[in-house]
Write a protein that binds this DNA or RNA. Structure first.
Lengths: 339, 339
DNA sequence: TTGTAAGCGTTATCAC
DNA sequence: GTGATAACGCTTACAA
C-alpha cells in the first residue's frame, strides 16, 4: 500500500496550451516581462481557467531561492511554555520578513530526532536563511548551522564557536546593573537577588550586573539561586531570601515571572510592596502589568529583537557583507509601582 | 545589483563521479535499494568526501512529497501572547509529526499580506498538509485551505463552511456544564460567570454550558461579559460582578487567566477564596498552579489536541479516508483549592 | 546488480 | 515579442 500521489495540478504547460502560446510567454507574464496585451489577456484568462497554482518546489529548484526563512526555536519547551517573550520575537521577525515578501517558517527542536531532521531541512534548500533563538548555549544544532554556511542570525548571546554568525541581543549586564542601581538609589539598604538560569548567559550576566551595581555592598548570602525563569521559582527564591535575611528591603528578580512569584511570597509573609520591600523585575513582559503592584522592570524589546534578526538575515540574502557581528538593543527601565 | 546565488553544492552527480558509478546507483544507496557492498562503500565514502547534502526542492519536485506539514496559527497575536495553550498544542503536534519523520513548519498569519503569502506557500508543494489552529472562526484563510484540497485538520471548532475538513476539539458546552454543576454542588447559591470572547465558538459554548448547568437558577445579571481570555479582563469582570451582586459566592471564569484576575479582584475586595467565594477556571494552564489558591479548573489536553490533529493529517497523507469528521477529547475536571 | 534516460514544473538563453 | 530548448537535482522504469 503505497501513498497516493496528490492529484495532478495545472502547470505552466497547461496554461500555454489553453492560451495557445508557449511556456516561455506564460512564464513572462507570471514574472513580469515584455508581453503583448492580447497575449497577456489570453494567458490571464487561461490561468484562472485551469486553476493554476505555481509549484514552489520547481521554482525553488530553478531559482535556488525559496523566499522562506526559518525561525528555529531551541529548547521550545521552556521557551514556549514559560517565556512570554518568544511569541513577541516571532511576531517581530515575521512582520519584518513579511514586508520583504519572505515566508517565515518556524521549526521546533526538542529532541535529537528533531535536531537531525531540522538540520536536513535547513540544508536542503527549503529555506534561504535562518533565525535562531537559543535559550541555552551549546546546542548541537548551532554547530550544524555554522557548518551549513547558510545566512543566519542569532537572537541572544551567540555561542562561542560561531563568531561567524551575527547576532542581536541586549546588554544583560548593563541592564541589571542599571535597575539594581536605581533600586539602591531609592534608599534600600539590604538588597537581594533571585538569580535564575545560571547555566545560561543571560542568567549569569544579570547576576554579574547585580554584583557590579552593589560593589562592596554585595553580599553573596543575599543571592537566591533558582533553576528557571518562572513563577514557582520566584516564590521559592523569595521565601529563601526572607529566611536568610528578614530585614531585606529590596529584591532584584531575574525575570518578571520570578518577580511575580516573589510578590506572592512577600504577601504570604505579610510584607507590603513597595512599602516594606521594593521589587524589580526583568523583561517587561505581560507579567509586569498583571501583578499587584505593577512591576518596575527592564524593558526587553522582544519584537524589535525579532525584526532586527530578520533584517540581519535579509541583508545577507541581499549579498551584503554584515559587518559588525553583534548588536545590542536598548533596554529602557520602566518604573512602575513595585519599587 | 542582483542577489548572489548561493555557492554550488555537491550533487548526486558529483558523488557518482567521485565513486565511479552512475547516478542511479547513488540514488539507490540514498534511498535503500539493491546495491553491492563494494559500490555502497565507495559511494558512502564519496558522500562524506564531497560533502553532499540532498536538495529537498529537487526531491520534492520529483516525489511530490515534502515530508513537511504546516502548523498554521491564525490570530497569533492573541494566541501567542495571551494563550498559554498554543505552545503546548504546537509541541504536541511536533512530537507526533516528528515520530512520523515529518517536519512541522509553523506559519503565522497576522495580516492580509500574510494570508496571501501563506496561501501560496501552502499550495505550492512545500508542505504535504496543514494543521490549523483557529482562534476565531471565519478567517479568510480557512476558505483558501478548504479550496486547496490539501490534507488538513483543525484544532478547535471547525468553521461552518468547511465540513470537509476534520477537526479535533473539546466539548466546551459539556465541560462548562460539568464544572459549574460541581461548583453548585459544593453549596454555592449565587453563582456568576465571567464570560469572555463571545465572538468565538469556545466563548459562546462555555456560556451555554454555564446556563445549562444552572437551569432555572440562571440569572443573566450574574454574567459579566469581557472581550478577552486574559488576566486584565478577569479583574474587571470580577469587579463588575461584585458590584452587581455583593452576595455572590461562586464564579465560573471562562479561562484560568480570567480566574487569576478574578482572584486578584476578590482579594482587593477583601473576600476570601474559597471561604467567601468559590472560583473555578478553564484550561488547566500554567496559570492554574500559579495562583493562590491554586485553581479548580477544566483540564484542556493541549498537547493531545496537537498530536491528534497531526495524526488526522498523517492519516490522510497515508491515503486513509478520514471517516468521522470531528473528535472531542476528554476534559477531566481538576479539583484544587479555589473551590 | 548496475547504467541509461526520461521527466517532475519552472525559468532563462537564445534565436527568430 | 515570442517560441524552442536547455538546465535545476533528483528518482525510477526499463534495459543490460
Amino acid at each position: 500500500m503505497s501513498r497516493p500521489k496528490p492529484q495532478k495540478r495545472a502547470t505552466v504547460h497547461d496554461i500555454a496550451a489553453a492560451a495557445g502560446v508557449s511556456r516561455g510567454t506564460v512564464s513572462r507574464v507570471l514574472n513580469g516581462g515584455y508581453v503583448s496585451a492580447e497575449a497577456r489577456a489570453a494567458i490571464e484568462a487561461a490561468i484562472t481557467d485551469v486553476g493554476y497554482v505555481p509549484n514552489n518546489a520547481a521554482r525553488t529548484l530553478k531559482m535556488r531561492r525559496s523566499q522562506a526563512v526559518a525561525f528555529v526555536a531551541l529548547e521550545p519547551h521552556s521557551l514556549f511554555l514559560d517565556d512570554p517573550n518568544i511569541g513577541a520575537i516571532m511576531l517581530g521577525a515575521n512582520a519584518a520578513l513579511s514586508l520583504a515578501d519572505h515566508q517565515m517558517v518556524s521549526l521546533v527542536v526538542e529532541s535529537a530526532r528533531d535536531t537531525e531532521r531540522v538540520a536536513r531541512y535547513l540544508s536542503g534548500g527549503f529555506v534561504d536563511g535562518a533565525i535562531v533563538v537559543s535559550a541555552r548555549t551549546r546546542d548541537p544544532i548551532i554547530k550544524v548551522i555554522a557548518d551549513l554556511r547558510i545566512p543566519a542570525a542569532f537572537v541572544g548571546h551567540p555561542p562561542e564557536l560561531s563568531d561567524s554568525i551575527p547576532f542581536v541581543g541586549i546588554d544583560n549586564v548593563g541592564s541589571a546593573r542599571s535597575i539594581t542601581a536605581r533600586l539602591a538609589a531609592s534608599g534600600r539598604r539590604r538588597i537581594g537577588m533571585i538569580a535564575a538560569a545560571l547555566d545560561r548567559d543571560s542568567g549569569l550576566d544579570r547576576l554579574t550586573g547585580f554584583k557590579n551595581a552593589l560593589g562592596t555592598e554585595f553580599d553573596p548570602s543575599l543571592v537566591a539561586d533558582v533553576p528557571h525563569y518562572d513563577y514557582g521559582s520566584g516564590v521559592k527564591g523569595m521565601r529563601l531570601l526572607l529566611e536568610r535575611e528578614p530585614a531585606i528591603d529590596g529584591v532584584f528578580a531575574a525575570s518578571d515571572a520570578i518577580a511575580a512569584g516573589a510578590l506572592e511570597a512577600l504577601r504570604e509573609a505579610g510584607r507590603s510592596v513597595p512599602g516594606d520591600v521594593g521589587v524589580v523585575g526583568f523583561d517587561d513582559s505581560t507579567w509586569a502589568v498583571r501583578c499587584q503592584p505593577q512591576l518596575s522592570t527592564v524593558h526587553q524589546p522582544a519584537k524589535e529583537l525579532g525584526s532586527f534578526a530578520a533584517q540581519l538575515v535579509l541583508r545577507q540574502l541581499a549579498g551584503e557583507q554584515v559587518e559588525h557581528h553583534g548588536e545590542l538593543l536598548d533596554t529602557p527601565i520602566i518604573w512602575r509601582d513595585s519599587a
